[in-house]
Simulated scan of single mutants.
Amino acid sequence: MTPVDPHDTIALLEARGLAYARNDEPVFGPLDFSLHRGEVVLLEGDNGSGKTTLLKVLSGLLEANSGRILLNGEDLTLARLSHQVALLGHLPGLKLDLTPLENLEFSIGVFGLRSGAAPAPALSSVGLEGYEDVPVRKLSAGQKKRVALARLLLVPAALWLLDEPYANLDREGIDLVNRLLDAHARRGGAALVTSHGAYAFTSGTPRRLPLRPTA
């Protein structure tokens, strides 16, 4: 992964005293951490430690009970989320009746398009050349995950939040995720990733952020 620039003093993402509770039961926090451009950070923790919940809070799907989230040194608001933060969750978030190409075109209409990117080359780069016009419902779980990965290549968001991106992928797919993360970091992006995969990050050693259940 690309080394962090020591002169990049403003973190792409920063959490200050961030905490979340469900039905008055603490899930995580308070947390303090930062993520700089060029970094890929592995979020570690046992089941129930709040990894998925944290990503949902950082992406705006859930509201923290306390604390602040800063993006490029400014408070993160819903208005800033769609074009600056990309979430890949357990579900691929695809419209099953649309084709991969149609799904990507829909995504561009909502989230915008990164300079120099285009849907067809993105599908080709994730191994889906020839599947552009096949309804997503006819694809395998691994192929659906690849469509979701192609979507990441198109969005202009600098911050990727990836929840188990290696799930449903074979060894070739795992290597693909590593290459995409490495390229994103080299472009000046950053990623926070959860994974139980034994082959995660075979292309590099990320910084690790432990997340433990709140006592």
Rank of each mutant, 00 (worst) to 15 (best):
G173A: 05
L58V: 06
D75M: 11
L43A: 02
Y199G: 13
N23C: 04
D170A: 08
L139M: 06
P30D: 01
V134S: 06
N103W: 06
V41Y: 01
D75Y: 14
V134K: 03
H184L: 03
G116V: 11
L104Q: 04
L76Y: 13
D170I: 03
P26I: 02
T77D: 15
R137M: 11
L61T: 11
D75V: 13
K144I: 05
K56H: 07
A117M: 12
T202Q: 15
P121I: 07
L31F: 07
G130T: 15
R186K: 11
L42Y: 09
R137D: 09
Q143K: 13
S49N: 03
Y20E: 05
S107K: 11
V126D: 08
Q84A: 12
V155E: 07
E74I: 13
V136K: 13
R146V: 12
S203A: 13
D32N: 13
Q84R: 10
T52V: 09
Q84F: 04
T9V: 13
K51Q: 01
I10K: 14
L98Q: 09
T2W: 01
E129V: 05
P3Q: 10
D24P: 02
S195D: 05
P6Y: 07
A191H: 00
D75A: 14
T9Q: 13
A157H: 04
A157M: 04
T53V: 06
L169A: 02
Q143T: 10
A198K: 14
V85G: 05
A118S: 13
D175V: 06
T9D: 11
G60K: 00
K138P: 05
N178H: 05
R80G: 12
R207E: 08
P121F: 05
V147L: 04
W160A: 09
T53I: 03
L54S: 03
L70S: 06
R179C: 02
N178E: 12
R16C: 09
L12G: 01
L162K: 03
P210Q: 04
T194A: 07
G48N: 06
A122C: 03
A185K: 00
K51W: 02
F28R: 11
D175G: 15
A79G: 15
S125M: 09
T52F: 12
P6N: 07
G38Y: 00
P6S: 02
A118P: 08
K138H: 13
G204T: 00
S82A: 15
